[in-house]
Design a protein around this nucleic acid. Structure first.
Lengths: 137, 137
DNA sequence: TCGCAAATTTCCGTTTACGTAAACGGCCAG
DNA sequence: CTGGCCGTTTACGTAAACGGAAATTTGCGA
């Protein structure tokens, strides 16, 4: 029961399994590897993806949906990989993380600006529509 | 005083003025025109950008910063241009606007997920840093 | 009316993020 | 031992969003 317990968490995925789970092509996974975003182990020359890789992939895809470039995503991933014994690296990660956080915050604000504009537009259209429908009665 | 009053709001921009204001190249403005996102008037064949064009440009650039493609941005701009007398068009605009709004909302949520993760990471790093510094004393 | 700077058009080049096809290797079932 | 399937590498292709340079065209001042 103890040996079996870890089985779920340390599951290993093939490239096809992972690509199906996240609805991307194997090519995309290999591409991310070429770009240095993932580095799965190998059995022979087959790729073996662990949980760690899967989590990183989630982050990559989330970043992609938000319009970040792969190199930008790599920067963010690097924050997670810093050597936790080097003081200067830790400080650097914190600083760069803060910068990213501010960027993200301003993105949220821009999104909310757009949403407010669209909501206003929606209300205008709605009013027009109702007036036209009322006149039609 | 009355004739002068509108001057500010109906200011006319050349392509170079507008490109400098928004820190983009004239080439980019022409590109947006080729893609149908802008359609400034002409004096001869010089482009004359009005307030309307400037506002549209702002929306375009904002969308671009958020990772939207130009065709997607065009869809959003079209929402602003719909014929406000046609009932079916109004209904269509409202529907498509609602879809967009939901997409935007989920983007905001994903951004906030990333921000939460980074904040957590930051706290972890901060603790590690402090522990190392304390041991150093 | 001439000339020249400024703006325009045209076309090819570039980057990013993969798609796609070709050719090959390993392994297991029949 | 031969498909068939999964996986790999290599290499060229492509769509989007411009950049850059060359070759006009236009407008305006001397």
């Amino acid at each position: 029961m103890n040996a079996n317990h870890a089985q779920n968490a340390s599951r290993i995925y093939t490239i096809n399994e992972l690509s199906e789970i996240y609805d991307i092509t194997p090519r995309t996974l290999r591409h991310y590897e070429d770009m240095g975003l993932l580095s799965p182990e190998r059995r022979g020359n087959q790729r073996l993806y662990r949980e760690r890789d899967r989590v990183r992939l989630q982050l990559i895809l989330r970043g992609r949906r938000l319009g970040f470039g792969l190199s930008e995503i790599q920067e963010m991933l690097n924050l997670y990989d810093a050597d936790p014994t080097e003081v200067t690296q830790l400080q650097d990660v914190i600083r760069r993380g803060d910068v990213k956080l501010r960027e993200l915050q301003s993105q949220v604000e821009e999104l909310q600006t757009i949403m407010a504009e669209m909501t206003e537009l929606r209300m205008t259209m709605q009013r027009r529509l109702e007036q036209i429908l009322l006149r039609g009665e």
